[in-house]
Design a protein around this nucleic acid. Structure first.
Length: 272
DNA sequence: GTTATTTGACCCTC
DNA sequence: GAGGGTCAAATAAC
């Protein structure tokens, strides 16, 4: 295949996206009558996201090399205080650790625990894949960064086995754009004072209804599949994929396994 | 009644 | 013994 590696392809696609976003920004700026500032801001945001993706993916290869020589090292250049302090084989099992300004990573998570961590102003939240019942053992640990309270430090453990393929159960990243963590887990420990903590998990605008439905007894998989469905009105209203290469890519026209790509790209990083 | 979330308790590692 | 991770009973939401 002409496509070298998933990383290379994504780099290429993101570069195209970057160029398109830049072009769009120019068009908006030159538009007559002038378009609303928020539209221009949107174009700028897209451009910025592309920049981040490219930077992140580019840095990924370097990090991987480093990780090979240092099993305990995390993928991301985290401040020392945000690193797992010590301990546990689990730390060595960490698939990756990222610092991001959102807890949304494209997967469906269910909160199963919360702990106040020594020396941290913020509690640590524990999530497992919402499809654990289907055998998916993926978990993650979320904590606000000490240095940057607006940022989250997310450590991922295990692999998602509930749906490695594109658009499968736990993978909500049919398009990386919509942050769709099912996380109604409230931070009941008000003492912590982070009212917006779980709002950081970014429910889709349509999610409350979905969530309500789930709580009425629907299996998570049903809910998520509906959320993922390209035919879902709420979904498609949020994201429209054109016939661009990126759209093709996100639409599953590319054949290689999505999980491979996501893993190699450290998807959570992209949301920084 | 069913399901998800909260949170104290327990277990394990250091 | 301290601290982090997970479990599970209690509770809340629908």
């Amino acid at each position: 295949m002409a496509l070298a590696t998933p990383t290379a392809v994504v780099l290429q696609l993101m570069t195209m996206g970057q160029q398109s976003a830049a072009h769009l920004g120019e068009l908006l700026r030159a538009a007559s009558p002038p378009v609303r500032a928020e539209h221009q801001a949107l174009a700028t945001e897209i451009l910025r996201c592309c920049d981040r993706v490219i930077a992140t993916v580019s840095a990924g290869a370097t990090d991987k090399k480093r990780k090979m020589t240092d099993p305990g090292a995390t993928f991301c250049h985290l401040p020392a205080a945000a690193m797992p302090s010590k301990r546990r084989v689990r730390a060595a099992e960490a698939h990756r650790e990222v610092q991001t300004d959102t807890t949304a990573d494209g997967f469906l998570w269910r909160k199963y625990g919360q702990k106040d961590i020594n020396g941290s102003n913020h509690p640590r939240l524990y999530y497992r894949c919402a499809f654990r019942g289907e055998g998916c053992a993926a978990t993650r640990r979320v904590q606000r960064s000490q240095e940057e309270p607006a940022a989250f430090v997310i450590a991922y453990y295990g692999e998602h086995t509930c749906g490695a393929g594109f658009g499968d159960a736990c993978q909500q990243g049919a398009a990386p754009v919509p942050p769709t963590v099912v996380d109604s887990g409230s931070n009941a420990r008000g003492a912590v004072g982070d009212v917006d903590w779980n709002r950081g998990s970014l429910l889709l605008p349509s999610l409350p209804a979905e969530h309500g439905a789930r709580r009425r007894g629907e299996a998570p998989s049903d809910t998520s599949r509906r959320l993922l469905s390209p035919s879902s009105s709420s979904y498609s209203s949020e994201v429209e994929l054109g016939a661009s290469p990126v759209g093709e890519f996100l639409d599953g026209s590319f054949d290689w396994e999505w999980e491979t790509v996501v893993n190699s790209l450290r998807f959570g990083d992209l949301l920084q």
